[in-house]
Design a binder for these strands. Structure first.
Lengths: 161, 161
DNA sequence: CACGATTTAGTTGTGCACAACTGAATCGTG
DNA sequence: CACGATTCAGTTGTGCACAACTAAATCGTG
């Protein structure tokens, strides 16, 4: 089998162009499709992800949301502020640990879930993938992400290439 | 085989949580890995994509870059201005069509290519995927993106779900 | 040729990602 | 108990994505 070592740098650069582009394109295409589907709910895609975890887990501290979505407070704080302004979530300082802020869906947020139920099905139908393919894609992407997250930054430095 | 139609909305919402998350996570993990690898070059990931197309195609109008990367002038104009400020590209109004701005790599931009040659190999090695797997992932993502880009927006509206 | 439609870059405004930082609360160890 | 280290949310600044818009050049049709 052809191994990585036998391929010239030039070919790698070309292949890189292709895979970078397709990953970038797939992500933006997915975002675009969700943007369209979520327009009627008044949610962005990241806001929808936050609502999904709140619907699934009930109330969570900001940190808990961040762990599940791999987002930090710099991203979540303003996003949650917008969700709060829209009336979908409420935030309050935890009584037990006043460093922590607990986030939970409001009544309007719960109603939103009912309106959101149809979204994933329409997306799935639009992709033309069946359930098994969707699950496989999920697993591949999940495995890739886990592997990438586990990379030692030093392995990306020139000295180790 | 289980079809989409027989799956309850609730299960879809849960599956959606998973696939949204894994796509989002894979993208951000990839971005993070590239960010690290490109740090020494002083490039961001989108800037690197632009340099890749310029290295491959020689000079291109802004529109040509946008078509290849599916980016509009609102994204490209400031990005190119930064690449120009860094000395990697130069822009000049086309003589034939003064609406158009031609972008090409400078000498420093060409030197950057030499230093960039090792990057994709290190990324590929870090993913632990072999060439065939990389090519397969590229094709799957490309096909998915093409399918998503081709979706009729109306198909995402509630009335058609 | 004239003039409305189109094309091309660019600008503005909103939202997300992330690094670096701040400040307050809490924890752990002496 | 005291005090330095850590944790947590939030802020600031930079860059990207995208929608909506502007201005200038070009095109196409009468």
């Amino acid at each position: 089998m052809e191994t990585l070592d036998t391929v010239p740098d030039e070919d790698f650069l070309r292949l890189d162009h292709q895979i970078c582009f397709s990953l970038h394109a797939a992500t933006r295409a997915f975002n675009g499709v969700y943007r369209e589907a979520l327009k009627e709910l008044g949610l962005t895609y990241p806001q929808y992800l936050v609502m999904l975890v709140l619907w699934e887990h009930g109330e969570l501290p900001v940190k808990g949301i961040g762990e599940r979505l791999r987002l930090d407070s710099g991203t979540l704080s303003p996003l949650l502020k917008r969700l709060e302004a829209a009336g979908y979530v409420e935030r309050r300082r935890s009584a037990e640990d006043e460093r922590s802020v607990t986030v939970r869906a409001t009544g309007a947020g719960a109603e939103l879930r009912e309106r959101a139920l149809g979204v994933p099905r329409r997306i799935a139908a639009a992709t033309g993938l069946d359930l098994a393919e969707i699950a496989e894609l999920r697993d591949r992407l999940g495995a890739l992400a886990a592997r990438l997250d586990g990379i030692d930054p030093d392995a990306l430095r020139p000295s180790c290439g």
